[in-house]
Amino acid sequence: DVEPGKFYKGVVTRIEKYGASINLNEQVRGLLRPRDMISLRLENLNVGDEIIVQAIDVRPEKREIDFKYIP
């Protein structure tokens, strides 16, 4: 289970102007929005990149997770 405040290694699977889709595994994925990137710009991400993200909002009833990137 993903817990708010914990850090996870994820893989960038899609990049859109509203954010990047991050997969932690086949069943768990979430969104990294541009506003939640401290020192990383969306255009510097590539599909397949592995990054460390922090879960900031977990809504299991909607199967949604928001991530934050902290270098």
Score class of each variant (00 low, 15 high):
residue 11 V to R: 10
residue 50 E to C: 15
residue 37 M to F: 04
residue 35 R to Q: 13
residue 32 L to T: 02
residue 56 I to T: 07
residue 15 I to W: 02
residue 7 F to R: 05
residue 11 V to T: 10
residue 43 E to S: 11
residue 38 I to G: 15
residue 16 E to Q: 11
residue 29 R to E: 12
residue 65 I to N: 02
residue 21 S to T: 15
residue 66 D to H: 12
residue 56 I to S: 06
residue 50 E to N: 09
residue 34 P to N: 06
residue 39 S to G: 15
residue 23 N to P: 01
residue 22 I to S: 01
residue 44 N to F: 11
residue 51 I to R: 00
residue 5 G to W: 05
residue 50 E to P: 10
residue 34 P to K: 08
residue 42 L to Q: 03
residue 60 P to E: 08
residue 52 I to E: 05
residue 54 Q to F: 12
residue 21 S to M: 15
residue 69 Y to T: 03
residue 52 I to W: 15
residue 49 D to V: 05
residue 18 Y to W: 15
residue 46 N to L: 10
residue 17 K to L: 11
residue 53 V to R: 00
residue 47 V to H: 01
residue 28 V to Y: 11
residue 40 L to V: 09
residue 61 E to W: 05
residue 53 V to D: 00
residue 35 R to W: 06
residue 13 T to I: 09
residue 35 R to Y: 07
residue 2 V to Y: 09
residue 17 K to P: 15
residue 10 G to F: 08
residue 48 G to S: 02
residue 18 Y to P: 02
residue 59 R to H: 08
residue 33 R to E: 04
residue 2 V to H: 04
residue 61 E to C: 07
residue 70 I to C: 10
residue 27 Q to D: 12
residue 66 D to Q: 09
residue 17 K to I: 13
residue 5 G to K: 04
residue 71 P to R: 09
residue 4 P to W: 07
residue 9 K to T: 09
residue 59 R to T: 06
residue 31 L to T: 10
residue 45 L to M: 06
residue 22 I to F: 03
residue 42 L to R: 02
residue 49 D to Y: 04
residue 45 L to C: 04
residue 17 K to N: 12
residue 38 I to T: 11
residue 40 L to H: 06
residue 8 Y to M: 02
residue 70 I to K: 06
residue 28 V to L: 13
residue 64 E to P: 03
residue 46 N to G: 08
residue 44 N to I: 05
residue 19 G to V: 05
residue 33 R to H: 08
residue 41 R to A: 12
residue 40 L to M: 10
residue 63 R to H: 13
residue 27 Q to C: 12
residue 10 G to H: 00
residue 42 L to E: 03
residue 62 K to V: 12
residue 5 G to R: 03
residue 2 V to R: 04
residue 60 P to F: 09
residue 52 I to S: 03
residue 60 P to I: 10
residue 42 L to N: 03
residue 21 S to I: 15
residue 32 L to N: 01
residue 43 E to P: 04
residue 43 E to G: 08
residue 36 D to V: 03
residue 49 D to E: 06
residue 3 E to K: 13
residue 49 D to L: 05
residue 54 Q to L: 15
residue 41 R to S: 14
residue 34 P to M: 07
residue 54 Q to W: 10
residue 15 I to S: 01
residue 17 K to V: 12
residue 70 I to T: 11
residue 17 K to F: 13
residue 68 K to Y: 07
residue 25 N to M: 07
residue 45 L to V: 06
residue 41 R to Q: 13
residue 26 E to R: 11
residue 53 V to E: 00
residue 24 L to D: 00
residue 44 N to Y: 11
residue 4 P to V: 15
residue 10 G to I: 06
residue 16 E to H: 15
residue 38 I to C: 13
residue 67 F to V: 05
residue 7 F to Y: 11
residue 40 L to T: 08
residue 63 R to M: 13
residue 71 P to Y: 07
residue 50 E to D: 07
residue 57 D to K: 14
residue 30 G to M: 04
residue 56 I to H: 05
residue 38 I to H: 12
residue 51 I to D: 00
residue 58 V to P: 04
residue 41 R to C: 14
residue 45 L to E: 00
residue 11 V to L: 09
residue 21 S to D: 10
residue 9 K to E: 04
residue 11 V to C: 07
residue 63 R to Y: 12
residue 52 I to P: 00
residue 40 L to P: 03
residue 19 G to C: 09
residue 41 R to H: 12
residue 61 E to A: 11
residue 34 P to A: 11
residue 43 E to L: 06
residue 21 S to E: 15
residue 50 E to F: 14
residue 27 Q to L: 13
residue 53 V to F: 04
residue 65 I to F: 07
residue 13 T to S: 10
residue 7 F to Q: 04
residue 55 A to T: 05
residue 5 G to F: 06
residue 69 Y to H: 04
residue 57 D to H: 14
residue 51 I to G: 01
residue 10 G to M: 07
residue 63 R to C: 13
residue 9 K to Q: 07
residue 31 L to V: 10
residue 26 E to L: 10
residue 52 I to K: 03
residue 29 R to N: 12
residue 28 V to K: 03
residue 46 N to S: 14
residue 42 L to I: 12
residue 58 V to R: 04
residue 17 K to S: 14
residue 7 F to E: 03
residue 13 T to V: 11
residue 43 E to M: 08
residue 5 G to Q: 04
residue 29 R to V: 15
residue 27 Q to T: 14
residue 59 R to G: 06
residue 37 M to E: 04
residue 37 M to T: 05
residue 9 K to V: 12
residue 40 L to I: 13
residue 44 N to R: 06
residue 55 A to N: 00
residue 27 Q to Y: 14
residue 51 I to Q: 00
residue 59 R to M: 05
residue 61 E to D: 14
residue 1 D to F: 14
residue 1 D to R: 13
residue 57 D to A: 15
residue 52 I to R: 06
residue 56 I to K: 10
residue 57 D to L: 12
residue 27 Q to H: 15
residue 26 E to S: 14
residue 11 V to A: 01
residue 66 D to K: 10
residue 8 Y to G: 00
residue 68 K to P: 03
residue 46 N to D: 08
residue 34 P to L: 09
residue 20 A to T: 03
residue 59 R to N: 09
residue 28 V to P: 01
residue 10 G to V: 08
residue 48 G to F: 02
residue 20 A to P: 02
residue 40 L to D: 04
residue 67 F to P: 02
residue 62 K to C: 10
residue 39 S to Q: 14
residue 38 I to F: 08
residue 2 V to L: 09
residue 30 G to F: 06
residue 41 R to G: 12
residue 22 I to Q: 01
residue 61 E to R: 08
residue 33 R to W: 04
residue 51 I to P: 00
residue 33 R to S: 12
residue 57 D to P: 04
residue 25 N to Y: 07
residue 30 G to V: 07
residue 10 G to W: 08
residue 66 D to R: 15
residue 21 S to G: 05
residue 60 P to S: 09
residue 12 V to P: 00
residue 23 N to C: 15
residue 59 R to D: 10
residue 63 R to Q: 14
residue 22 I to A: 01
residue 38 I to Y: 09
residue 57 D to F: 12
residue 4 P to N: 10
residue 16 E to S: 15
residue 16 E to W: 15
residue 4 P to G: 06
residue 38 I to Q: 11
residue 6 K to A: 07
residue 35 R to N: 10
residue 54 Q to V: 11
residue 54 Q to K: 08
residue 63 R to S: 12
residue 38 I to V: 13
residue 8 Y to A: 00
residue 14 R to F: 09
residue 48 G to T: 01
residue 63 R to K: 14
residue 47 V to G: 01
residue 63 R to A: 13
residue 34 P to E: 12
residue 15 I to A: 00
residue 44 N to K: 06
residue 68 K to E: 04
residue 45 L to Q: 00
residue 36 D to H: 11
residue 59 R to L: 06
residue 61 E to Y: 06
residue 69 Y to E: 06
residue 12 V to G: 00
residue 7 F to H: 04
residue 69 Y to Q: 07
residue 64 E to Y: 11
residue 57 D to N: 15
residue 36 D to P: 02
residue 36 D to A: 05
residue 45 L to K: 01
residue 36 D to K: 02
residue 31 L to C: 14
residue 9 K to C: 15
residue 22 I to L: 03
residue 52 I to F: 09
residue 60 P to W: 12
residue 29 R to L: 10
residue 16 E to T: 15
residue 52 I to Q: 03
residue 56 I to F: 09
residue 14 R to W: 09
residue 15 I to T: 03
residue 32 L to I: 05
residue 66 D to W: 13
residue 32 L to W: 02
residue 63 R to E: 11
residue 18 Y to V: 11
residue 33 R to K: 09
residue 9 K to P: 04
residue 9 K to A: 08
residue 30 G to R: 01
residue 42 L to D: 03
residue 48 G to R: 01
residue 62 K to H: 09
residue 23 N to M: 15
residue 57 D to M: 13
residue 60 P to C: 09
residue 41 R to F: 11
residue 7 F to I: 06
residue 68 K to I: 09
residue 11 V to M: 08
residue 71 P to H: 07
residue 33 R to V: 06
residue 42 L to Y: 07
residue 66 D to G: 08
residue 35 R to C: 10
residue 70 I to G: 06
residue 70 I to E: 09
residue 46 N to C: 14
residue 21 S to W: 15
residue 27 Q to S: 14
residue 39 S to W: 14
residue 29 R to C: 13
residue 46 N to Y: 08
residue 28 V to E: 05
residue 30 G to Y: 02
residue 62 K to T: 13
residue 59 R to I: 06
residue 20 A to H: 02
residue 13 T to C: 09
residue 16 E to G: 14
residue 7 F to P: 03
residue 10 G to L: 09
residue 19 G to Q: 05
residue 46 N to V: 12
residue 57 D to G: 15
residue 55 A to C: 15
residue 71 P to F: 07
residue 68 K to A: 15
residue 2 V to P: 05
residue 35 R to F: 06
residue 66 D to I: 14
residue 10 G to S: 02
residue 58 V to F: 07
residue 4 P to E: 11
residue 3 E to S: 10
